[in-house]
Design a protein around this nucleic acid. Structure first.
Lengths: 204, 204, 204, 204
DNA sequence: CATGAATGAGGATTCATTCAT
DNA sequence: GATGAATGAATCCTCATTCAT
């Protein structure tokens, strides 16, 4: 990878990543507003000014993180779905992919759940629009499998939209709880519990 | 209620409520940081100074809203549980109570989901501690019904904690989606869908 | 004057004037960019923040000064012209009015001559547009007298535009020199010299 | 000229000129403060760092332009005066030389008129001092012709200082107006108008 | 008590200048 | 020498909080 990049270009790319990584932590801890550019710069071990050679402004840093992560989540989800032999297996893979992604991206999960509502408001901004589009496409992906499963009589004929909301709600809820209790144990271990509850329900 | 309050005291109480109500809107729209005291004062049709006779500072306004709402939600939940003849019915009531509450308190739901993570950090503050305690007691309440249902063999013997997380996750997810799509139709109508998915699962 | 203003309103107006007066000095000394809001605040004996209750931003302070002064200069010029019994006398009055105004408004003269070119560029701004309009109307006023004088055969039939440029150039040049040499003696005393040179020329 | 310069030295000199020329444009457009080193470097098609091998700092670039131009203007003026057969002709030549110079150096004229007042303040700097000295010598040159003309009874016995101020004021005013209206037509054509107004005055 | 002007700490951003490559 | 990334001082502006009237 990066075969064709000059050393200088590779350094720039690495620095960019370092800044984004530091910013992700701070944004997760404090949210967009309370996070300060100074603090991000300090955590990234760069001067304040350096951030502005890599990003247009604070919002650009934020949206760059979100764009990358949302895109990456979407890709993982898509891949997980394709791998399944049948809709049920696809959904099981979907759950696993979600948990795996959030386990590696705790900070992003926190940012996403707390700032999502915010960046959908007052969308004048190209980047913001693109971001919202990516989110939607991710949801549609999940709805897609649900629809396939319903068509295949694997799932009850409930609106795929509702099925998607229910599953994602459970996944997010378990993830949030896992983070709240320290995020130490393995989140992926919960995959069977979630699958079982989603498919079979809780009734004894 | 308020039997023993003088007229002056009643006015003060009403003003307090008016301020909190205005603040709730602003906080829901913009989040804690982006909301300005000026804007809250204007929306509440009070002078900025007046807010400071009713509340110690901006955080105090915020936590007052949260305390009241979290307390109120907890109370509703407790009541809903008690009314049920058996654990299953209690859980059905629990779902309805949730949806009813969020339908009336959209703004609070938005604030809660976006700021919850934040005010759990750096809890030096009495009010914050109390708030977190209230949240926990609300969760424990839900876990309580789940435990009863498991004991009663109404639900599979899954950890009550997991059952609570799953149900709350679904409820929050449906609520969030409802708000995102405008919050016009009735949220409570979704109660049977959620109950069915929770009890019976999605499998056809 | 200000009969109908409450005390508070009068104080506000006085404060506004104090800020503008301090700003005028600083802008004259350093120009728009080098002048800092901090310095203006300090000179005005207000806090930095206070300036922002009176003015939208630094540019607003600057344009407020210019607007008032340009308007005031224009008014003086118009009045001076009207008072003359004939075009020649009107022009003499015009010269006197100019010198009198600049003598009292050294700082404005300096700002005007150094920033004029600047605020004509990139006029996106209502205030800037209005300002340029006022400047033009002042020039047209001077051209107006010249035209009358030419029509009346008091002046050679040179384009009134050229006559206006020549006279204003001389007036500005004498003013600039007067300021450069300390601005102590009376500028108005130069009125006959300028009038003589303008009307009779330098040739012996 | 530059006979004894090596190729390397000639390149350096050419680069220096290219930078100064680019800087002159930017300074004329925006003034000293609003002009950025980045922009100058870009316009000159050099790296930012390169500018600092040719000039000590931003002020050095600015003062280098001014020094060269002021010196050049002074030289032209001196030459124009010498060529005249008598004082009157010398003054006519002086006017022509001025207009010719400003026609070729619009940018410098703009910089000069807007920044002149500024760099006379707080002169701690050798370069600045030298610059002010050059300006003064240019004025003295003009005063010199005026004195000669007065002595020769070609002009009224008005102080040569006043005569110089009046003439220069007119020249600058016409130049400023010419630039304001686009600077397309020939500025030099105005030479007879200015001479006539200066010598004979405006009276009909 | 209510008001809203004043305060000033805090934060985002710019840009001249330096310096490692 | 040339480059342009990095620096950080400087600056504008915001806004929670205070306090004189």
């Amino acid at each position: 990878m990066h075969k064709s990049l000059s050393r200088r270009e590779r350094v720039k790319l690495a620095n960019r990543e370092a800044i984004l990584s530091a910013a992700e932590e701070i944004f997760a801890e404090k949210g967009f507003y309370a996070a300060t550019v100074d603090e991000i710069a300090e955590r990234a071990e760069f001067s304040k000014g350096a951030l502005y050679t890599y990003f247009k402004n604070k919002e650009d840093i934020f949206l760059s993180i979100m764009r990358e992560k949302v895109g990456s989540l979407g890709k993982k989800i898509k891949e997980s779905i394709k791998v399944g032999l049948n809709p049920i297996e696809s959904i099981e893979n979907l759950i696993k992919a979600h948990l795996e992604f959030f386990e590696k991206n705790k900070e992003f999960f926190q940012i996403m759940t707390s700032e999502k509502g915010r960046f959908e408001m007052g969308i004048k901004n190209k980047l913001r629009k693109e971001l919202v589009r990516r989110f939607q496409s991710y949801l549609e992906e999940v709805e897609g499998v649900m629809e396939a499963a319903v068509d295949n009589k694997d799932l009850k004929s409930i609106g795929p939209n509702h099925l998607a909301i229910a599953l994602i709600g459970m996944v997010h809820s378990f993830t949030a709880q896992w983070i709240l209790t320290g995020g130490e144990s393995s989140l992926m271990e919960l995959s069977p519990v979630i699958a079982s509850l989603f498919f079979e329900g809780a009734k004894g």
